[in-house]
Amino acid sequence: MPNTHLLYLHGFRSSPQSMKARQVADYVARRHPDVTFWCPQLPPSPAQAQALVARGVADWPGARMAVIGSSLGGFYASWVARQKGCPSVLLNPSTDPAATLARYIGEQVAWHNPEDRFFFRPEYIDELHAWDVRGQPPGGPELLIAAQGDEVLDWRAMVARHPQARQIVRPGGDHALSDFPELLDEVLAFCDLA
């Protein structure tokens, strides 16, 4: 039975205005108008983000939903998939954000609105551990898309972290997956939307 709900989780310093989030939203609106689509603005605190997402999908049917996550959102998406038993698409996912985000403690600027500033606090690093489902089997089918040219995260760590996923490793590319329009049909086909 096709999925009726789709969650998109953006990355660190990103927003629902990211290129990929907008492209997924437009695709779903055009081709799957009856699907419930949600891309929340995630707060900087991982604990607050987890509470927001958990509340937002609490009533969603796990057997009829999918989740897409990019970068830090990909790390979060693995947790959602475990909780809901649903398929996930991981786009250049962060594999160990507690390690990689430690250097961002302090004031940060949002990518899509330079006037939007937030403070990334030291305790947020500890909060990331609650999202970590490393070593546990995925909650449902996983699709990993990893760009070898990712300038932020190591694609080899992504491949090693998600061995059970169907893996698409793209030569070249970048962290933002600038070639995402070429992947959109495959990503949404994997989500099996109604």
Rank of each mutant, 00 (worst) to 15 (best):
R30W: 02
Y8V: 06
Q23P: 01
R55S: 14
V24N: 10
Y27K: 03
H5W: 05
A63Q: 12
L9D: 06
M65L: 03
S14Q: 08
R31S: 05
K20E: 02
S45G: 09
Q41W: 10
H10K: 08
G56V: 05
D34V: 14
A29H: 08
L42T: 06
Q23R: 14
P61D: 10
P43S: 10
V67G: 01
F12P: 03
R31C: 10
D59A: 15
T4C: 08
S18H: 04
A49T: 03
T4F: 05
P61V: 00
A58W: 01
S18W: 05
A29M: 05
V57F: 11
I68T: 02
V24C: 09
P16K: 08
R13P: 07
Q23N: 08
L42G: 10
V28Q: 11
V57S: 01
G11D: 04
Q48D: 15
A25Q: 13
S45Y: 08
P43M: 12
L42K: 13
I68C: 06
G62W: 08
D26R: 14
L9F: 07
Q17I: 01
M19A: 05
G69M: 03
F12H: 07
G69R: 04
D34I: 07
R55A: 13
F37S: 02
V24I: 14
P44S: 13
L72T: 09
F12K: 02
R55L: 01
V28T: 13
A49H: 03
R22S: 10
W38I: 00
R64W: 00
P44K: 13
A58C: 01
K20P: 07
A25H: 07
D34G: 14
D34P: 01
M19Y: 11
G11T: 03
Q17H: 09
S18K: 10
W60V: 00
P61M: 06
V35T: 15
S71G: 13
P16A: 12
A25K: 15
R22G: 04
H32A: 04
G62D: 04
I68P: 00
W38A: 14
L7K: 02
A58P: 00
G56A: 11
N3H: 15
S45Q: 13
L6H: 06
P46L: 05
W60T: 00
H32S: 11
P33Q: 12
Q50F: 12
A25G: 10
F37R: 07
L52G: 06
G69V: 02
A49C: 14
D59N: 10
